[in-house]
Design a protein around this nucleic acid. Sequence first.
DNA 1: TTCACACCTTACGTTAACGTCAACGTAAGT
DNA 2: ACTTACGTTGACGTTAACGTAAGGTGTGAA
Lengths: 134, 134
Amino acid sequence: MSNRSYSITDLATDFDITTRTIRFYEEKGLLNPERNGQTRIYSAADRIKLKLILRGKRLGLSLEDSKDIIEMYHPEHDNSPQIMKLIDKIRERRRLIKEQLRQQLQDLNDMLSELDQAEERCVEALEDMQRKAQ
Amino acid sequence: MSNRSYSITDLATDFDITTRTIRFYEEKGLLNPERNGQTRIYSAADRIKLKLILRGKRLGLSLEDSKDIIEMYHPEHDNSPQIMKLIDKIRERRRLIKEQLRQQLQDLNDMLSELDQAEERCVEALEDMQRKAQ
DNA sequence: TTCACACCTTACGTTAACGTCAACGTAAGT
DNA sequence: ACTTACGTTGACGTTAACGTAAGGTGTGAA
């Protein structure tokens, strides 16, 4: 286990975000770093959480969603009903992600082929103009 | 060519959005429907534009981006420098989309496999508890 | 004619996700 | 002692993408 710790600017420069953003995530309950006095000290686990958040963002998830997902990695294994609820949440989330994956693949492929066609039309129009300009 | 036309509520119910949303897209310059008096009348082309916008949204594009993309399908083929600029924009956009595709696929697969692991850990924890409860 | 719709415009309200000061503390180097 | 660098807490500002009334128009059915 990596015991390394990070300052807030360490993480900010690592992930190319601002310190304000990191504090904002804490405000929203997605991060809870240790403190040395009032200075925040981030663990390797915090770093991973941040990574999860940013990945969620790239996928279009809200911070609330990412908060949910983070909690799936740090279950408070109090009792078995709790865990069973968590398992259900994980499965539901996986369902959502798979559906999203399908949809995005379709969308992106559609868009790519349409861009190809648009380019083709442009090239043809260009050739037409050059022929007439002779 | 389909000469069918649509009312604003037609489109709204078709795409499961509100009329406010459609008017908003017009405000932002993404749609320019015909008018009968003050009532908007949407053509098949308008319908397609709306489809493009919503697909863009699913992919995380902003309305500005979608506006750009829509204009790629309706080039004002004034002169060849214009068209060449458009072709460049199309190619750049395709580059962006391909990169996004790569990243999102990676993100989604990572997330799926991590959810699998999280579920596995949960199931194990559950089994542990049941064994001890006997 | 009066009612019910479907449409319109204008305009203020809302939410998420930060940005941007201001004002302050602290520790290290010169 | 002074500057520089990095950290802190408020707290108000901003942008995108709509939501939500409030009030007016036009048209067909009862």
